[in-house]
Computed example of a mutant assay.
Amino acid sequence: MKLSKKFEELIIKQLESFGCSMGVTHLVMYLASTEQGTKASFEMIGQWPQIDRLLVSVEDDPSLKVSSPNRRWYPLQENDILLGVLRVETDLKEGNWPVSLDSRLKALSLSLAKCVSIELERQNKNEEINYLKSQVNVIIHQLRNPLAALRTYAKLLIKRLGSDVDSIEIVERMIIEQKQINNYMDSFAQLNSPIQLPLDIGEERLLLPPNLDNKKLITVQSLLRPILERGQANANLENRDWTEPSLWPDWTLSPLKAKYAVIAEIVANLLENAFKYAHKDAEIGVAIMSKGLCIFDDGKKITKIENEKIFQKGFRGSAAKKKDGTGVGLFLARKLAKQIGGELRLLENSSINDVEELKSFKKKNIFYLELPIKELHS
């Protein structure tokens, strides 16, 4: 087993902290080592005091083949697995070991065994992570070829469609979606690079790829446009009414700071829920307000009891009982909204009156994403 430098330093510190105690003159820690086709051995990995001495195994140290009353061995054991041993040498006369010394050495051996167990677990996790990264790399490589082929076939189809404008528009949207999948591939490719985990997000993955290029100009309109086109396509397929903004106020057209790209994820998540849970003939849409966005549906009204619970992680409302899902979407959407200084809530009749533009907006379920308008722009 190849040990990390931090692990070796920790072992030395543990041995040093016990040194010069109650007649102890030498502490040596060995790790059990086995290779396929060979018998088990115990390799020295640390000692106190640190003298100029080769780190030899138990089997290769002739002095250990002679028993001594001043030497004892303490197993480093995790459950039924022997991980190593601790060798203790003393200057005690006639091997008269105090009970208190024996107890302390047993405690030290338990502590060392736990250190070894944690190090082994860390190494196993690293091996798993490296394997998964390797597999992700292979999958990305394999996916890029069929994705490129889909784009090629789509372009060929556009040529054959000639003047069929409506059909060409559908194929062009397919090309846009193919480009979006390529963005996902780019995101996955970054997994093999050192990353800094976002501490304020939690363990949930993002539903959309991040803004990979911080220098790329983005606006609220550019973020929402592909999502709205997808919503229109879904509405057409399900033969339901769809409403989207016709006028875009100035705050939606001004360049955004890169961190606000998550607005697209929040909206996409809310629309996905609406299409999944609203009944088949319910209208769905997006509206722009002076201080944020509304994602609404005219389906069955979410009950007052469930109004806040739907934002709890893992909670699934009555409309979702027979549908696939994990109950994470709204929890994450609100978390992202708060992360960028905004707020996401499901409006009740009383709170609708708090937003001037919504007083005449008669829809069953209205999710209001309030945004820090002044802070949005570069």
Rank of each mutant, 00 (worst) to 15 (best):
L31K: 03
L31W: 01
A32I: 06
S33W: 03
S33R: 02
T34N: 02
T34F: 08
E35F: 10
Q36N: 03
G37W: 07
G37I: 05
T38A: 04
T38F: 13
K39P: 08
K39T: 11
K39M: 11
A40M: 07
A40Q: 06
E43D: 09
M44P: 03
M44C: 08
I45M: 01
I45Q: 00
I45P: 00
G46P: 03
Q47M: 13
Q47L: 11
W48L: 01
W48M: 02
W48G: 00
P49Y: 11
P49C: 04
I51W: 08
D52L: 15
D52T: 10
R53Q: 12
R53W: 12
L54H: 06
V56I: 07
V56H: 05
V56K: 10
S57E: 04
E59W: 11
E59Y: 11
D60G: 04
D60V: 09
D61G: 00
D61F: 09
D61M: 09
D61Y: 03
P62R: 05
L64E: 04
V66P: 00
V66H: 04
V66F: 13
S67N: 15
S68T: 12
S68W: 12
S68R: 14
S68E: 15
P69H: 10
P69V: 05
N70V: 15
R72T: 04
Y74L: 10
P75H: 11
E78V: 07
E78S: 13
E78D: 06
E78A: 13
N79I: 04
N79W: 02
D80N: 08
I81E: 15
L82N: 13
L82R: 07
L83M: 05
L83W: 02
L83A: 06
L83D: 02
L83V: 04
L83F: 06
G84D: 02
V85M: 07
R87I: 01
V88S: 02
V88E: 05
V88N: 02
V88M: 06
E89G: 02
T90C: 13
D91K: 15
D91P: 06
L92R: 07
K93L: 15
E94V: 12
E94L: 15
G95C: 06
G95M: 07
N96R: 15
N96S: 12
W97S: 10
W97N: 10
P98T: 09
P98F: 15
D102C: 14
D102E: 11
D102Q: 06
S103Y: 13
R104P: 01
L105F: 05
L105V: 06
L105A: 00
K106P: 00
L108M: 15
S109M: 05
S111M: 14
S111T: 15
A113V: 01
A113D: 03
K114I: 03
C115M: 02
C115W: 00
C115Q: 11
V116P: 02
V116Q: 03
V116I: 14
V116N: 01
S117K: 03
S117A: 07
S117R: 05
S117T: 03
I118W: 07
E119I: 07
R122V: 10
